[in-house]
């Protein structure tokens, strides 16, 4: 038998403690049914969470001492246990734990999302849905010209956002690549830019669109700016990862012929990154067309704005036509970008 390791298995404790702590919290809520007042008391909330976690950890520790197989020990096994050492009174404890956890989560989830069969099959609502689908399925082609004009606006919005993002992302990609920014001063720039880009990227394009629709006014320009900011951050990250993964060999090979910096970048770095760059960019345009549609919903212009107007007036046949146009264009973009990326491999 292999000697059990003395090292504390943190991941196991974390998983078990969260699981037990969650169950404990739910039980407390179910039993005491506290009023909504407690959500105002931050320290009480955090205190409660901590207490539950600690109790969960204690439970986990106890179970480990009893040699019971918990979920944590199954997912993160830390030692070879001989079967005889396992507690026989609670075989497959982890299965019970898993099912309990899943069932409780589903029940709580159902309550929280107010899932209701009565509403799903409520006659009034149901008839409304039927009317909506009937409208969608018999699209009113009268709005087709307007929809086409708008989707062209959306595609161009996405195109401009992508195209304008490329030069920024290209320059940033070198400044955000560890293997280029080795010098201590350069490393500070690297850290600064990297953090900035991470923050920028973690703000959804939708939020940027809201910001810019206030800043430059509702319309395609706001949508374009939002997409551009988001594209710069995303492309710069993908590009810089490419630059980080290039091999040094060709660079030294070219350098040793007496080539200058630009020649070295052109002949040794660019060939290594150009295809992935194009591939990422085409994919980004594809993503931007979809995002541009959504952004239109919050005032970014294009087909999204048109969609929200007709939807607001419950003009379902017109909405059906718009959705059809969106579906066809997104599908075409998807196919085209997949084809281009495949061809570049």
């Amino acid at each position: 038998m292999i000697k059990p390791s003395k090292k504390l298995n943190l991941r196991r404790y974390l998983l078990d403690a969260s699981c037990f702590g969650f169950l404990i919290l739910i039980a407390v809520f179910a039993i005491f049914q506290p009023s909504d007042e407690i959500w105002r008391n931050l320290s009480l909330i955090f205190g409660g969470l901590l207490a539950a976690l600690l109790m969960g950890a204690a439970g986990s520790y106890l179970l480990e001492k009893l040699n019971v197989e918990t979920l944590g020990s199954v997912i993160f096994p830390d030692r070879i246990q001989s079967l005889s050492a396992l507690n026989k009174r609670f075989p497959r404890f982890w299965l019970v734990q898993l099912f309990l956890f899943l069932i409780v989560t589903f029940v709580v989830g159902a309550i929280k999302t107010k899932a209701s069969f009565t509403e799903l099959f409520d006659e009034d609502g149901f008839n409304g849905a039927v009317r909506l689908f009937a409208g969608l399925l018999s699209p009113n082609m009268d709005v087709l010209p307007k929809a086409l004009v708008n989707i062209i606006e959306t595609v161009f919005m996405a195109f401009m956002a992508t195209a304008l993002a490329i030069p920024f992302a290209f320059v940033l990609s070198f400044l955000c690549a560890r293997n280029i920014m080795k010098h201590p001063a350069a490393f500070a720039v690297y850290m600064f830019l990297r953090t900035g880009l991470n923050i920028t990227r973690s703000i959804e394009a939708l939020i940027w669109a809201i910001i810019f629709s206030v800043w430059v006014g509702i319309g395609p320009f706001a949508g374009m700016m939002a997409l551009m900011i988001h594209s710069i951050a995303s492309l710069a990250k993908q590009y810089s990862e490419m630059v980080e993964s290039i091999s040094e060999g060709p660079i030294e090979g070219i350098q040793s012929t007496g080539a200058n910096v630009l020649q070295t970048i052109w002949f040794a770095v660019v060939p290594q990154v150009i295809l992935p760059y194009i591939s990422f960019t085409v994919y980004r345009w594809d993503i931007n067309v979809r995002m541009a549609t959504i952004i239109g919903l919050v005032g970014g212009g294009g087909i999204g704005t048109m969609l929200i107007q007709y939807q607001g007036q419950a003009m379902w046949p017109e909405v059906g036509c718009i959705i059809l146009v969106i579906a066809v264009v997104v599908w075409m973009m998807d196919q085209a970008s997949a084809y281009i990326r495949e061809a570049l491999k």
């Binding site: 060709p250 030294e252 070219i254 002949f267 040794a268 060939p271």
Partner: peptide
Amino acid sequence: FQHFNLIPRH
């Protein structure tokens, strides 16, 4: 060099 260090795509 040991690994030739050519430009593969050229």
